[in-house]
Design a protein around this nucleic acid. Structure first.
Length: 720
RNA sequence: GCGCGAUUAGCUCAGUUGGUAGAGCAACUCAUUUACACUGAGAAGGUCGCAGGUUCGAGUCCUGCAUCGCGCACCA
């Protein structure tokens, strides 16, 4: 076959993503250009260039890439490649997360299958097994991140359990303690009876349920409750001080009455948190197992008594029901109350909200426990100042409102978890007076309050406590040059779902420790849903594995398919058609390249060509487009840039300009040269502009159209 | 209960400061040997959730309502 243009053989076949992507990624890695220092050494970035940095949300080391990750990697890589091409000193720092609770749950399931249980293992044994498990699996996720084309600097990769990270987390813990922002409190916490650990308020899911509401005779009163099984210890009866129905009773007044297990003496409490409209306007309280009741008990300094143990079984106070699981006990207790004539009525269509473990759906059983808490108000106030001064740019903007509302109403953060897999809390506990002492150097042995012997705290930190320090910890705060060069980072890109869990807490802790905001822009993407707009879940069987799509249609097709029309914050329905369409686009680019090479080889690259009017107009339009999209890139409107580039490439360049060039090339002379020059320029500019979106196919094409031997990833973003 | 968001073509969604509605996919009609069938040309498809209001002019601004989704909340 004739081939005067000396066109590579592969260009005569359809574009093969599978035959290209792995090779290109290796080439990039070998070049070292993911590392900004190399870009400077080799002269692609000026040493005094402005920096641009993104810290990759640490990926669960033990996990597998899901559709949401696919979007994270795509969006962040687009930003990073764009800035790198523009000459910024660009760092994208990858990291892995030990993902404390999440990983422990996965491991527990594995143990269960093997007929083992974590409760039969020592701390050390379990920790070591999970560590091995995690480290073994971590190569998997890393190769999946690579397959997405992520141009992150692997030489700077961090893991949340790296010793230097742990050191930073410990020093923050100590600083909080010294600044009196940390306390060990015996307070009501959310407890999951299945997982045997406490949670912060964020790990709790609300669920609307229909349950019977029992109206029980309590001496002269009638009280309404959905949880008769907690009522054994109720010896306080509470009503509103202004409720005329109960004006004859005084605060503190004692009354004798017959209750579940016999006669008791109850005390009347008047508290204005009581809603006079609800039920009878009277309730009894269970301070050990209800946050609202706990608050009332605190206000009036009332006794608190534990009724239910950590596994959800009734304690001896329940008399004949002692040792019984609450799920079984309720029915029997109601029966007994009925026998005693203490049930006034049952409203069996009562709609209310229960709190469940976000992971297993088990009903949360509030318990009073000694735990470490961070005082959040002072931290939140500093964050609010910065946010209200617009020092942090939220995309989309509505997240600013959501964040400020949360910060204004923040409650203290319980950072203790009763799980093994995590960063151990460096503290000593006095079991006798329930004091806790921060002890990084492991030197304190006796309680300074009561003199008794201390034990090591066996709890670990909430994973989010360490990941909230990630931007500065991963950059080597406080001494590393990277910290000085790249903090504050430019963009934090993650799922809108973790706005409170992670983003807001990073702002607070970043500000607290370093005095600076951790990032200037927060870009939050929405959920990735299935083709029908349903949330993906294993139980529904509608989970789309991004790697199936990339292996079928190519990573480039997947990437641009994820981006086009996907506005920040809005959830995306991931339909296969969507991705398939863009695999055709990669092939279109491939064929266009062949046409351009075949038809321009005889035009010397250094020849000055004057374009004719029509061609000049086309070129002006292209420059106008580049100008527009450069602005839109800076505004993070990738969804529109991707669409415009796609549209221009296909429907202007291919359909109009190439078609027009055919007759001009046949005509020869100036018309031919004008057409040829335009073809070359269009292709050159569009391939560069498309690179952040479709890095593989563009890099491959670049190697055929550019003679400089500079990889496209460090070539320049087109100038308008 | 409070708050946030959504409601635009069959589907998924754009629509910047108000100026006669756009894209992709799907469906429809033609075209078929040189860049590309992973193609080209063309046509069709929407009283922009409903009701008011501001305006010369509203998908866009204001008010109310409806439906869906999501947060937050110590009414037992």
């Amino acid at each position: 076959m004739e081939n005067p243009a000396n066109i590579p053989e592969k260009l005569f076949k359809p574009y093969s993503a599978a035959g290209t992507e792995g090779r290109i990624y290796k080439l990039w890695e070998k070049s070292g250009f993911f590392n900004p220092d190399t870009c400077i050494e080799k002269g692609h970035t000026k040493p005094d260039a402005e920096s641009f940095s993104i810290i990759m949300p640490p990926t669960n080391a033990n996990g597998s890439l899901h559709a949401g990750h696919g979007l994270v990697m795509t969006l962040e890589d687009i930003m990073v490649r764009y800035k790198r091409m523009q000459g910024y000193k660009t760092l994208w720092l990858p990291g892995l997360d030990h993902a404390g609770f999440e990983t422990q749950v996965v491991y527990e399931k594995k143990l269960e299958k093997e007929d083992r249980s974590r409760f039969d293992m020592s701390h050390e044994e379990l920790y070591k097994e999970i560590l091995d498990f995690t480290l073994t699996n971590s190569t998997n996720i890393k190769s999946q991140i690579r397959s997405m084309g992520a141009s992150c600097d692997w030489s700077r990769e961090k893991f949340t359990l790296d010793p230097d990270i742990v050191t930073t987390v410990y020093s923050t813990f100590k600083k909080l303690s010294e600044d009196k922002l940390l306390y060990r409190g015996k307070r009501i916490i959310s407890w999951c009876p299945k997982h045997q650990t406490s949670f912060s308020d964020l790990e709790i899911a609300d669920e609307e349920r229909m349950d019977p509401l029992y109206y029980l005779k309590y001496g002269p009163f009638v009280i309404a409750t959905v949880r008769p099984e907690t009522k054994f210890g109720d010896k306080y009866v509470v009503m509103h001080p202004l409720d005329p129905r109960y004006s004859e009773y005084a605060n503190g007044q004692k009354i004798d009455l017959e209750w579940i297990n016999g006669p008791i003496t109850a005390t009347i409490i008047k508290d204005d948190s009581i809603d006079m409209e609800f039920g009878t306007g009277v309730m009894t309280i269970t301070p050990w197992h209800d946050a609202a009741d706990f608050a009332i008990a605190e206000r009036h300094k009332l006794d608190k008594e534990q009724i239910i143990d950590e596994k959800g079984k009734l304690l001896p106070i329940a008399g004949e029901f002692s040792g019984m699981h609450i799920s079984k006990a309720r029915k029997l207790i109601v029966e007994k109350l009925q026998t005693k004539g203490l049930v006034e009525k049952i409203d069996d269509k009562y709609k209310h909200v229960v709190r469940t473990c976000y992971k297993c759906g088990t009903l949360i059983e509030p318990q009073i426990k000694s735990q470490w808490f961070v005082k959040m108000k002072p931290l939140a106030e500093r964050a609010l100042e910065k946010i209200n001064a617009d020092e942090i740019n939220y995309i989309p903007e509505q997240y600013k409102k959501i964040t400020t509302y949360w910060l204004e109403n923040i409650i203290d953060w319980n950072i203790s978890r009763q799980i093994v897999w995590g960063i151990p809390i460096p503290a000593k506990i006095c079991d006798s007076c329930e004091e806790g002492f921060v002890d990084l150097d492991n030197t304190q042995t006796t309680c300074t309050t009561c003199g008794k012997e201390l034990r090591q705290d066996t709890d670990t930190f909430d994973t989010w406590f360490s990941s909230s320090q990630w931007p500065f910890a991963a950059l080597g705060y406080p001494e590393s040059p990277d910290f000085k060069n790249y903090y504050s980072t430019d963009v934090l890109e993650t799922a809108g779902e973790i706005i409170f869990f992670w983003v807001s807490r990073m702002i607070m802790l970043g500000l607290y420790v370093t005095g600076e905001i951790p990032f200037e822009t927060v870009y939050l993407h929405g959920l990735v849903l299935d083709a029908k707009g349903q949330k993906m879940s294993k139980s529904k069987g509608n989970v789309i594995n991004p790697l199936d799509l990339t292996s079928k249609y190519g990573t480039d097709a997947f990437r641009i398919g994820m981006v086009v029309g996907n506005t920040p914050g809005t959830s995306l329905a991931l339909a296969e058609d969507r991705i398939r369409g863009y695999s055709k686009f990669a092939n279109k680019m491939w064929n266009v390249t062949r046409f351009v090479l075949e038809n321009t080889y005889d035009l010397p690259t250094d020849e000055k060509v004057t374009l004719d009017a029509a061609d000049q107009k086309s070129l002006d339009e292209l420059y106008a487009l580049i100008k527009e999209i450069t602005v839109e890139m800076d505004e993070y409107k990738f969804y529109i840039v991707a669409e415009k580039l796609y549209h221009h490439f296909w429907h202007s360049f291919a359909d109009v300009i190439i078609e027009r060039s055919k007759t001009k090339i046949t005509a020869g002379g100036d018309a031919k040269r004008s057409a040829q020059a335009l073809l070359r320029e269009e292709l050159n500019i569009l391939i560069r502009a498309l690179h952040p979106f479709m890095p593989f196919v563009t890099e491959e094409i670049w190697s055929m159209i550019d003679r400089s031997e500079t990889p496209l990833m460090v070539s320049s973003w087109p100038q308008a």
